[in-house]
Every structure is written in structure tokens, then in C-alpha cells.
Amino acid sequence: MAMNERLHFWAPRMLSALRIVAGLVFLEHGMQKFLSFPLGQAAGSGFAFDNPGAYAGLVELAAGLLIALGLFTRPAAFLASGTMAVAYWIAHAPQNAFPVNNGGDAAILYCFAFLYLVFAGPGPWSLDASLQRRGEGA
């Protein structure tokens, strides 16, 4: 089997791996905001919705979990992508023109990774794919 054929075989699986890792790390941001876990630089605020970041945290929790599981992946990724675009332009861009200086580089990467998932789907290692296979077998 040629190198390109092997890479082509693994491409859908790596899409799933990208989705799982991005979803878990995104979920971790929401957990840190609301649950103070894992402990780190930012202290959690509990379930107080007194700032826009708290609403982003809610999306990070819910969409991050759904994306990691591969359940309702496309709508969850769409919501997450939009949330990160808004977060960038509201919280980061006003501070500095360069993402590496304004701390918005992660928001940009999340925005485009999740936008990609909207179009590419969850990949074969997902609950969405499992439910689809189960429905076709019925």
C-alpha cells in the first residue's frame, strides 16, 4: 500500500481525533470557568452569569462535551465557532492588532477548527456516526 493510500485511509480517523482533542480542551476551558477545575491561572467564578465570559463558558461546557463525544457535532461546532469569533472580536481584538499579543490566538484556532467540523462532520469515531450506522441497520 502506497503512502498516499495509507494516509487517505487514516484521514477520517484523524478527523475524529482532531474533534475529540479540540472538544476536550474546549470543555476544559468551561470547567475551569465554572468548576475551578483544573486549578490554574484563572479562578473559577462558579455559576455566576455576571459577565460575557460566563456565557462563553457555558458554550465551552456544553458544546465541548458534545463535540468531544461526537454528538450533534455540526450544530455544536457551529455554536462553538461563532462563540469564539465573538470572543475574539469583543475580548481580544480591542487589546492589540496581533493575535499573539492580544491572547486571541486560541480563539481564532478554535473558531476555524470548529468551523471545519461544521462542514467535515464528526468522523467515524463518534456517536453521530454510530447512531447513523444503527439507523441504517434497522
Score class of each variant (00 low, 15 high):
V25S: 13
L27E: 07
E28A: 13
E28S: 15
E28F: 06
G30V: 04
K33L: 10
F34N: 01
L35Q: 12
S36R: 06
F37N: 04
P38V: 01
P38Q: 02
L39K: 14
S45M: 15
G46Y: 07
F47N: 08
A48I: 13
A48N: 14
A48R: 14
F49E: 02
F49K: 03
F49G: 01
D50N: 15
D50H: 12
D50V: 12
N51R: 14
Y55N: 11
A56E: 08
A56V: 14
V59I: 14
V59H: 04
A62L: 14
A62P: 06
A62Q: 07
A63I: 10
A63D: 08
A63T: 11
G64H: 03
G64R: 02
G64C: 04
L65S: 11
L66A: 10
L66C: 08
I67A: 04
A68T: 12
A68N: 08
L69H: 04
L69F: 07
L69D: 03
G70D: 04
G70S: 03
R74Q: 09
P75K: 06
A77E: 00
F78D: 08
F78S: 09
L79Y: 01
A80G: 03
S81D: 05
S81C: 05
S81V: 09
G82F: 05
T83S: 13
T83M: 13
T83H: 05
M84E: 11
M84C: 08
M84K: 09
A85N: 09
V86C: 05
Y88I: 06
Y88W: 05
W89K: 10
W89E: 11
I90V: 15
A91R: 00
A91P: 04
A91V: 09
A93Y: 12
P94N: 04
Q95C: 03
Q95L: 15
Q95Y: 12
Q95T: 13
Q95K: 14
Q95G: 10
Q95A: 15
N96D: 15
N96I: 07
A97T: 10
A97W: 11
A97I: 09
V100N: 13
N101V: 11
G103D: 05
G104F: 07
D105W: 09
A106S: 13
A107V: 06
A107Y: 06
A107E: 09
I108G: 01
I108C: 05
L109R: 10
Y110C: 02
C111R: 06
F112Y: 12
A113C: 12
L115S: 06
L115I: 01
L117M: 00
L117N: 00
L117A: 00
V118N: 00
A120P: 04
G121P: 00
G121W: 00
P124F: 00
P124I: 07
P124H: 00
W125L: 10
S126G: 02
L127C: 10
L127E: 05
D128S: 03
D128L: 02
D128Q: 03
A129Y: 06
S130Q: 15
L131D: 08
L131F: 13
R134T: 09
R134G: 07
G135M: 12
G135T: 09
G135S: 14
E136N: 13
E136R: 14
